[in-house]
Amino acid sequence: MHIEVWLYGPLARYGGSEGKIAALVQAELPAQSTVADLLASLELPTEERGITFINGDLSAMPGLQPDLGRILNDGDRIAFSHLKSMWPFQYRHAAALTGEMQGAVQARADGGMRSRFDEEQLSPGE
């Protein structure tokens, strides 16, 4: 199946671009491939990616990646951004999320109301 992959900023190098602005990869994967399979084919370590979209639906954020097992469909557009990207809560409140992301944020006591999810252990000044 065919997947359109957008790689932003420093991740563009995983799409063969020497610049660090953006790369577009037209990926061919076996049917039933998952996001993890796609990352493996790009040789992109999952911890290097940040905000991720599948067809415009938010599927992962730094520290919260419920999309690794998601099975992709032919024609999907998937976009990976780097760890210095951001999408503050108030600008994503009630935007479209994948089913897996909806489940992941609903399972949290804070309902996903955070700027990121990889800062949980921080307690500066202590």
């Binding site: 905000i51 951004s81 500066p124």
Partner: peptide, 26 residues
């Protein structure tokens, strides 16, 4: 300390235009 506001973090590196690709993909 925070990834968005620290030196050479999201805003110090890319400015508020760091939102362009994200909001576009959304």
């Amino acid at each position: 300390e925070h990834a968005l506001t620290k030196p050479q973090g999201a805003l110090n590196t890319y400015g508020t235009c760091v939102l362009v690709n994200i909001i576009n993909e959304a």
